[in-house]
Every structure is written in C-alpha cells, then in structure tokens.
Design a protein around this nucleic acid. Structure first.
Lengths: 139, 139
DNA sequence: CTTGATCCTCTAGTGACTAGAGATCGTAAC
DNA sequence: GTTACGATCTCTAGTCACTAGAGGATCAAG
C-alpha cells in the first residue's frame, strides 16, 4: 500500500526531484521515512500530487494551489477567508474558461475553413487580445 | 499612433522589462527605434502583447505561444505542420477546459452547500486528481 | 536650464523546477 | 557473504520566465 518516491512518480507523472521540491515548499507534507531514511507515501499523496500537477498545468501558481489545498484540508471550516479565496479563484477560473473557449472556437474555425479550401485569415491573436479590455483585473 | 514602451505597458498590463524580455526571446519583433534609440510600438504590437499575456496566464509556455503566433503570422499557409500544431493545441485546450470546468463545479458546490449551512466535505482535490487517469498524455 | 519621469543596457535575483555529483541503501545473482 | 546496480538520499548548480536594481542618457514641464 505504501509507495516509494519512484513509484509515486510513476503513478502521478511528476518527476522525483519535483516531488521533493513540493515537500520543500510545503505543498506536500513531510513524507514518512523508512528506517533507512527513504520517503514513503500513501494513496492520499497520490491524489494530492495529481491535483498539484493539474493545477500547475492550468496555470495556477504554487501559492494559489496552497490555498486550494488548504480548502481541501479544512473542509469543515468554510470561514469567511476561505470563502472569499474560493470566490476569487472561481472568478479567475471562469475567466480562464472563457478565454480558452474563445481560443478553441477560433482554432477550430481555422482548421475547418482550411478543410474547405478557403484561405482563412487567422484571428487567434485577436480573439484573446480582445479580452485585454478586461484590463488588470487579475494582477 | 505610436506608443512608447511605457505606454504599451499601461495599455497591456505587461511590465516594461517583460516587454523587453519578450523581444529578446523573439515573441515580439525587434521594435523600431526613435533617433534617440527608444522603442516605438504600433497597434499591432498591442494585440500581439495582449495575446501573449493571456496565453501565458492560461498556462501556455513561451514555445507554444511562439507556435500560435506563427499560425497568426502566416495564416495563408495552413500547411500540414501548422495544422497538426493547431490540432495538438486544440486537444490541450479541450483538456484544460474540461478540468477547469470540473474544478469550477466543485468550488461552486462547496460555496453553495456552505450557504445552505451544510457541512461540505471538500472534493476539489479529487475532482482534478481523477483526471490523473489520463496520464502522461500531455507531454 | 534644471528637475523628474521615462528610457536605455546590463547584471543579478526570484519562482518553479531540473539536472548532476557523490554517498548510501536494497536486492538479486554469483 | 559479497559484488553489482538501480533507487534513494542530500546538496549544489543550471534553466526558464520573468523581475528588480544600478548607472547613465533623454525627454517634457516648469
């Protein structure tokens, strides 16, 4: 049931040094050690690490992930602070979804018009750039 | 019509040194200079830079952005290479949207059940972690 | 013509990894 | 048992994408 760091790495697709790094910066708790000082992990660590990997890939920074994990670690205390954090992230996520959807639509349109032989002018750039009107809201 | 680097920065929300950095790494073309060696920019640069900013925020790395910009720079040549790049990005974008949507749903559920006084167990972690089943497909 | 903001280049620091050196540990094969 | 070798350990240094700062030049307002 317990995994070595290498097994955890294979299980999650996160590289071994990166796992150690996440422990260093407090995204993962300090791992239990065997008598010979090797880290051991359980199933909970697998989920947590997969979450971290996806969140990073989605452009959340470590600090944001720390907050999301905190929500998960203390679910029964949705105090005002956690609540406002959640709301802020929700707004950020909505914005990301909107922009990705716009980008997707445009790339699809390009591929599509290409298939039909029409010379397509590419507007991928503009479709995201126009979102620039919502200036400076996310820092 | 022409902007200084500071004006471009205010226009796009991208910091001045970052703009220079993007020029260094080739995301922005080498800027025209005034007689006194200052960079000047036009409206095209505003769009391009906004696009870069959003793309970065959405978790695309500089190299991916370079590819997307190339699509935009040569729209009339949807050769097979560009086409496959677009398709790969499309798949990646779809996946990002899926995961963000799942995360959004779960955060909403938390906020919602909190509002109704129920003690909500937080599953934000699991909802993304389960996507870990689609292992190693992106890079 | 001075003063302050903005620009220039260049070097160095940060965040989030990633790679490598050198040492130790665990197991399987002799 | 002991040798072989792969996985792990710690620690330092390198990469990518910025970000901040020093030191100097330039522009625009007063």
């Amino acid at each position: 049931m317990n995994l070595s760091i290498g097994a955890l790495s294979r299980e999650t697709g996160v590289k071994v040094p990166t796992i150690r790094y996440y422990e260093d910066v407090g995204l993962l708790p300090e791992a239990d050690r065997t008598v010979s000082n090797r880290r051991t992990y359980g199933p909970g660590d697998v989920s947590r690490l997969r979450f971290i990997r996806h969140a990073r890939d989605l452009g959340f920074e470590v600090d944001a992930i720390r907050q999301l994990l905190q929500m998960s670690d203390h679910p029964s205390k949705p105090c005002q602070e956690v609540d406002s954090i959640a709301r802020r992230h929700l707004a950020n996520i909505d914005s990301k979804i909107d922009r990705l959807t716009a980008l997707r639509t445009e790339i699809r349109r390009m591929l599509d018009s290409d298939a039909h032989g029409t010379i397509s002018e590419c507007r991928v750039l503009d479709v995201l750039a126009e979102h620039g009107k919502c200036l400076h809201e996310h820092h």
